[in-house]
Design a protein around this nucleic acid. Sequence first.
DNA 1: CGAATAGTTGAGGTGGCTCAAATTTTGTGG
DNA 2: CCACAAAATTTGAGCCACCTCAACTATTCG
Lengths: 286, 286
Amino acid sequence: MGHKGDIAARTERAFAVVGLGGAGGVSLGASMTRALGAVGRKFRSLGIDCEEGLQALLPLVKVKGSISRGADIVATGGSTHCSTVLLNGTACRYKVTESGRRQIFTFQYPGDFCDLNRYVLAESDDAVAALSECSVGIIRHEDLERITRQYPEMGQALWRNVMVEASIFREWLLNVGQRPALARIANLICEQMVRLDAVGIDGTVIPLTQVDLADAAAVSPVHMNRTVQDLRELGILARSSRYIEVVHRDRLVDIAKFNGRYLNIHQTTSPWGPPRWMSREAAPLH
Amino acid sequence: MGHKGDIAARTERAFAVVGLGGAGGVSLGASMTRALGAVGRKFRSLGIDCEEGLQALLPLVKVKGSISRGADIVATGGSTHCSTVLLNGTACRYKVTESGRRQIFTFQYPGDFCDLNRYVLAESDDAVAALSECSVGIIRHEDLERITRQYPEMGQALWRNVMVEASIFREWLLNVGQRPALARIANLICEQMVRLDAVGIDGTVIPLTQVDLADAAAVSPVHMNRTVQDLRELGILARSSRYIEVVHRDRLVDIAKFNGRYLNIHQTTSPWGPPRWMSREAAPLH
DNA sequence: CGAATAGTTGAGGTGGCTCAAATTTTGTGG
DNA sequence: CCACAAAATTTGAGCCACCTCAACTATTCG
């Protein structure tokens, strides 16, 4: 308990000092600290408690700048010498068919790596687009290499990160392939709640439009809209525009029959209580 | 050219000698050599040319035995101290919804690792089932660890393997989410052709039933059947039972608008000519 | 040769799609 | 702060790709 907060605090402090060297103004410094803090939280959600490694890694993240909604953060294509981290905002990984239809593979939140696959594979045919104003950082592959050599736990975290991503793809495939629209959409929303909470963002407010969700759930925007309205009438979602607001978590989890084990989240930074979402036939606690 | 065959030959020799110690009878020995050879071909398809590493790895693969169609090779659940390799037969990775619907995530062929994710993640909620009589081998995680420490290239190969798997999941999600049944099924079949060829198995004969394919493409068995019949009438598939036989590769690739880049296959063991499937808007060759 | 599995066929139903237009919300420049 | 443009959401209507159910046939295997 005290332990968690402890590490978080030390992590942020480390950044304020090392990352910015005390040079920036108050406002920039604060936002930077918060931004890099997301990376720290992400690592913690992966079950890594290697403060030293984190302190070594984070100063190597160079803030690259801001990208506006609709623009690509990472484009299709060949290898690069560095990888991208989302520091602020919401993004999505996607691909487009020959006939122009877009499928979103995963949503990305602060702390998420955008193109770790390129670190290994060089060639990649998917892209990452900003779904809101985003700020991103980059880290050079050689730096990443050095860190993982020096702090094996950090390398493990990256492995886990990749594995969890793959696990998300599989769950989505199950979701899109086998569940009817309502359950499918409910599942999708549940996942976003949990993942947002895991990096310390309030999961009841999901920063995605209905159109974004439609491309993720593989339903038409029209049908997404109708389903959202159904969920509102059930008292589960709130009447909000440009984002989804969950007002009745439990009932949503119930409709979805959601089980978040596939996310492999180890610890939660969420101040919104214990991870109830794991409830369903989850942990062998007693 | 000569190079390829060279390595393959040496690999097989290494096995016959090291793996079996010259102890087994002719028939068992030969099938063993062939089985482990698949693992070698798999590594080569990943673009790894580390013969030493392979020679070190392969003797550590213990043949575990035979599993019959329908049975699970790897069940849902917690961590193990070893990973499983498919040596012979066809398998699939899958998961089932709360309402009993099955989604297949990928098909697996000789040489494929079944549960590399458990090496990293401990917990995994998907399973691997045999789709034919399968023989599998196991390798202990500590051995894997030693090998990858000693031969970094081998570790790279495992990374790549995981990344390519994830890439397949994404493509399938695009496929299931955004393409109509005919194109979807054509894509699916194209992928199997290419992947089989890549490990030296004739890709024109795909060892999958229509039911298996249906659970992968997320269409009902009835609709799969009707689509297969359509493809037959187009002269693309042959009239065959319990497997799919492709008689007109190019036309299938054309219907699918298939582009196999996402498979990241580096070299091909296939004696059936150059990888034409890569043709479509593929490499910047000239 | 029977039992099981895989494939085939017909008929009827529907979940979700497309098209198209209206309305609301948000962002932008003046 | 307003007016306009752009983006997001909403609504209605018609339709069709694919589904389910159910029975029948062909194949495989013990």
